[in-house]
């Protein structure tokens, strides 16, 4: 009973949901990137690597420019560059996209660790000072609403960006011609090609978008939350985003729901001192919950029909 009341006490606190939404919105960016990429027919497991690269370069840029926006741009470009490699190898060379994506993840670890040591003479890059950090924005008036104000209107600027991007992506994907074409390319590239759609261009665009979004997430993590780069600091978030994408059946809002489960998980893990349950059992909860929900409610997740299949015009 004591545990239940402790849990309840945590669940009604604004701090808890503020943190959960922040981490959920962070994960939503790479997850959304994955959705776009795979909707266009390119399997993408490289969000982890693109995010790590973005995180690294955001800190490098923030330390040299003392401007978070420059850092965000650099991070997105870095993530985008990794994505371009994935796109180039997947689309131009019709490669196995799992191998390519996995190689991106390995390359990112090697590259960032190597450069981190090189640039800092083996001391690790410095902390980003406040001038290079992404700001928290309190929305005037609304932020004073009890509870809701704290959860929704006192967040890092990237949280708002992330939510907006989710809404926009959902609109574009399901309510515009561009979205229709993108999905067509991912489902029936031959038919799309016949209809005059440029399959390659759309796929390149979608994969690069996934890199830009993952890079943005890396920047949010490194200069919005942590204000530092540490080796391997993404610690598997890209894979969690991958899971969220599939969990959400390749839809932006579906993926976001899954991301929120993990965001709540992060917030729960942070509350271990408050809830009197062994820390590690508490930290298992979101993953077990995701398993149960997936098995019980979500069921079969089917990717776009042409996902992972390189497109060859007119057969070979």
């Amino acid at each position: 009973m004591a545990i239940l009341s402790q849990l309840l006490q945590v669940l009604v606190s604004g701090d808890f949901w503020q943190l959960a939404l922040r981490d959920g919105a962070l994960l939503a960016l790479p997850a959304l990137g994955g959705v776009l990429s795979e909707r266009s027919g390119v399997t993408n497991i490289a969000m982890e690597g693109m995010m790590l690269t973005g995180a690294f370069f955001s800190v490098v840029a923030a330390l040299s420019f003392h401007n978070p926006w420059m850092a965000v741009i650099v991070a997105m470009l870095a993530g985008g560059a990794m994505a371009l490699i994935h796109a180039f190898i997947s689309i131009r060379f019709r490669a196995d996209q799992i191998i390519s994506g996995f190689a991106i993840n390995i390359a990112a670890v090697g590259l960032t660790t190597f450069l981190n040591a090189k640039l800092s003479n083996f001391r690790g890059l410095q902390q980003v000072d406040p001038s290079g950090r992404l700001p928290t924005i309190n929305v005037p008036l609304l932020d004073n609403i009890p509870f809701l104000g704290q959860v929704f209107f006192q967040q890092n600027i990237i949280v708002y960006v992330s939510l907006a991007l989710l809404a926009i992506a959902n609109l574009v994907l399901f309510r515009t011609r561009l979205g229709l074409r993108l999905r067509a390319v991912g489902e029936h590239p031959e038919a799309a090609d016949t209809a005059g759609i440029n399959v390659y261009r759309l796929r390149y665009g979608a994969v690069i978008m996934s890199g830009l979004l993952s890079g943005l997430a890396g920047a949010f993590l490194a200069i919005g939350i942590a204000n530092i780069f540490n080796d391997n600091m993404t610690s598997g978030r890209g894979y969690i985003a991958l899971a969220a994408m599939i969990f959400g059946k390749w839809t932006p809002w579906g993926a976001f729901v899954a991301c929120m489960i993990f965001g709540v998980g992060d917030a729960l893990a942070a509350s271990t001192g408050v809830i009197n349950v062994p820390q590690y059992f508490l930290q298992m909860v979101p993953y077990v919950l995701a398993l149960v929900v997936l098995a019980g409610l979500v069921g079969r997740s089917t990717p776009p029909a042409a996902d992972g299949i390189p497109y060859t015009p007119g057969g070979e």
Partner: peptide
């Protein structure tokens, strides 16, 4: 004195989150 462990030495987020919780306490 509130005490928490992050089980992590490299990813700064769990530590930031634990701090957040301690601040809210």
């Amino acid at each position: 004195v509130l005490v928490a462990y992050s089980d992590e030495f490299s990813d700064p987020t769990p530590c930031a989150n634990k701090t957040d919780t301690q601040i809210s306490q």
